[in-house]
Design a protein around this nucleic acid. Sequence first.
DNA 1: GAGCGCTCCTTCGAATTCGAAGCAGTAGGA
DNA 2: TCCTACTGCTTCGAATTCGAAGGAGCGCTC
Lengths: 165, 165
Amino acid sequence: MPDSPPSLDPVQLGAYFALVEVTSLLRHAVEQQLKEAGDLSYVQFQLLARLGDSPTGSHRMTDLADGVVYSRSGLTYQVGLLEKAGLVERSPSADDERSVTVTITDAGRTLLAAVLPGHVEVVSGLLFEPLSRDDVHTLAELLAPVRDHMRSAPPRSAAPRRRKT
Amino acid sequence: MPDSPPSLDPVQLGAYFALVEVTSLLRHAVEQQLKEAGDLSYVQFQLLARLGDSPTGSHRMTDLADGVVYSRSGLTYQVGLLEKAGLVERSPSADDERSVTVTITDAGRTLLAAVLPGHVEVVSGLLFEPLSRDDVHTLAELLAPVRDHMRSAPPRSAAPRRRKT
DNA sequence: GAGCGCTCCTTCGAATTCGAAGCAGTAGGA
DNA sequence: TCCTACTGCTTCGAATTCGAAGGAGCGCTC
């Protein structure tokens, strides 16, 4: 194939494919563990974890959506489920009337604590098992700039694509 | 917090979170590009790419599902869409009557070729932009063993979990 | 203090996803 | 040959996802 203009290096290709497959497999494994342990989807777990991490135990909807890389409507749906399950509470924000503040409840914290160990176990066993301490450090240092770069790249008209049409 | 028994190192945590966020952002960006360029979902693109890579241009359903880390029913649905769009063809396998062989059509190859450059561009721009050649090499070498490890770990009763209940 | 654009959230409908159940076809042993 | 277990795929229903549209509040300018 002597003509694939903007092709990727074999090395890049390998890294890209590995990345996709690793995260896909990890995602599936984690999802299953969470479902068994606490009947939570990965998104729900992420939301609870994020709330639990916050000093106040709460976040605005928008911040949650951004943090989890999720659509607003999807977030509304999931928070609705969590609220129905008594794991979080919704309240109007004090300073901004249109904003909704989501707060984790005691039940939410309890469930989170119950589920976390298993989650960590799966991640450790799958992702970190074959890596040394230094490897993990290296990985973190490689991904950090990538993450920052992606964050700063506008999601919409992101790439200066456009070619024909 | 002096008691989170099986917690992750801060370093591990950082690597894990970065991994999740990076792939999530990448996925969204790629998905959008594919939709604009050729009205393909990421899964459909993966399927076409996999078929296009094959020497024969075809694969059995099961192999496709495994390769893409996908449920069988979901695969049936997506292949159905691709077939309806004239991008692939389904035919009974020669040797095994229950098996279905999926083959990419000329139209499929054409579309794949039309979409690939943009895809590569997005991945390059987002994932590889902030990384040097050596960095990418290192990343690939870190992920390879992880991928192999995950592949070998059974998806179902994967981890020797089980604790209470 | 009215107008105008913007942000925040929700509702709606359509598309995609999965697991469970069902339908052949295959393989191995009695 | 017949039985039984298993594999490969599809159908079904329920749950999740997104984007577009809608309603309400905020902030700036005039």
